[in-house]
C-alpha cells in the first residue's frame, strides 16, 4: 500500500512534467478555456449592450452569469477526457504501458496517475478561469469557488472513467481524438446546458436522462448558483454510478497492448 502510494506520487509528478513539455499541453488545457471564457463573455456583453434598451437583456445576463461559466467548465472536463484517451492510445501503441507493467508498478497505479494529472490540470484551468473572471469578466464572478471546483473535479473524474472505456475501443491512437470527440461532444446539446432538458422533445429528453453529462451540468449549474450539495444528491449519485459502471466495464475490456 505504502509502495503503491509512493509509485503513484512519483509517476504523477513525472507525468505532469512530461505533459507540461507537450507543445500545446499547457496552452491547450489552461489558456484556451480561460480565453474562451473571456472572449465569449466580451462578445456576449457587447451584443447585449447593442440591443435597443440600454440595459442588457435578462436572457443575456443569465447566459453570462451561469451558462457560459458552466459551459466552459464542461469543456475543460471534456477536453481533459479527450486528452486522456489520446495519451492512453499513444502509451499503448508505443508499448509504454506494457513496459511499465513489467515493473513493480501495479497496473491501476499507471492509470490512476493519469487521472490525477487530468484532475490537477482541470482544477488549475478552472482556478485560472475564475481568477481571470474576477478582473476581466463583464459580470464578474461570485460563485462558491471551492464548491464549484469540487463539483467539476467530481464531474471530470466520473467522465474520465468513460474515457477509459473509449480508450479500450479505439483501434489506434490516431482515432482516439476524433472518436472520443464523436462520442462526447454530442452530449453537450442534450445535457440541458443551453436548452433545459424538460423542453426537449420527449425522445431526446429520454436520451438525455441516460447521459452522464446531463447530471454533470445540473450539478455544476446548481453549485455555481449557490445551491447546497444536498440539493444535488441525485446528480452526485448518478455521476458516482457512471464511474462505477464505466470502471467495471473498462477493467474488463481495457487493453494494455
Amino acid at each position: 500500500m505504502r509502495a503503491m502510494l509512493r509509485h503513484l506520487l512519483h509517476l504523477t509528478l513525472l507525468e505532469i512534467k512530461i505533459f507540461v513539455r507537450e507543445p500545446l499541453g499547457v496552452f491547450g488545457s489552461l489558456a484556451v478555456p480561460v480565453l474562451l471564457f473571456l472572449v465569449v463573455g466580451r462578445i456576449a456583453i457587447g451584443s447585449a449592450n447593442d440591443s435597443d434598451t440600454r440595459e442588457a437583456a435578462p436572457g443575456d445576463i443569465e447566459f453570462l452569469r451561469t451558462d457560459l461559466p458552466v459551459f466552459v467548465a464542461v469543456m475543460i472536463a471534456l477536453s481533459a477526457v479527450l486528452s486522456l484517451v489520446t495519451i492512453i492510445g499513444i502509451y499503448r501503441e508505443g508499448g509504454i504501458l506494457k513496459r511499465l507493467r513489467a515493473t513493480p508498478v501495479r497496473p491501476p497505479t499507471i492509470l490512476l496517475a493519469h487521472v490525477l494529472v487530468k484532475l490537477i490540470f482541470t482544477a488549475a484551468a478552472l482556478g485560472l478561469m475564475l481568477l481571470a473572471g474576477r478582473r476581466f469578466y463583464p459580470v464578474g464572478v461570485d460563485a462558491p469557488l471551492a464548491a464549484f471546483t469540487a463539483a467539476l473535479v467530481l464531474t471530470t473524474w466520473s467522465i474520465l472513467s468513460i474515457g477509459f472505456v473509449i480508450a479500450s475501443l479505439v483501434p489506434t491512437a490516431r482515432f482516439a481524438q476524433p472518436l472520443g470527440a464523436l462520442l462526447l461532444y454530442p452530449m453537450i446539446p442534450l445535457s440541458g446546458l443551453f436548452t433545459p432538458v424538460e423542453t426537449l422533445p420527449p425522445a431526446l429528453a429520454a436520451v438525455a436522462r441516460f447521459l452522464p453529462l446531463t447530471y454533470a451540468v445540473s450539478l455544476l449549474r446548481g453549485i455555481w448558483s449557490g445551491n447546497p450539495w444536498s440539493a444535488h444528491a441525485g446528480d452526485i449519485a448518478a455521476l458516482v454510478l457512471v464511474f462505477v459502471l464505466a470502471t467495471a466495464v473498462a477493467s474488463r475490456v481495457f487493453r494494455w497492448e
Binding site: 512530461i18 513539455r21 507537450e22 508505443g94 508499448g95 509504454i96 506494457k98 513496459r99 513493480p104
Partner: peptide, 16 residues
C-alpha cells in the same frame, strides 16, 4: 519482478 530485469521488443518510453 524485483529479481529480474527486462527489455521488451519495440518498447518506447514517453517521448518527452
Amino acid at each position: 519482478q524485483l529479481r529480474i530485469g527486462v527489455q521488451l521488443q519495440e518498447a518506447q518510453l514517453q517521448k518527452r
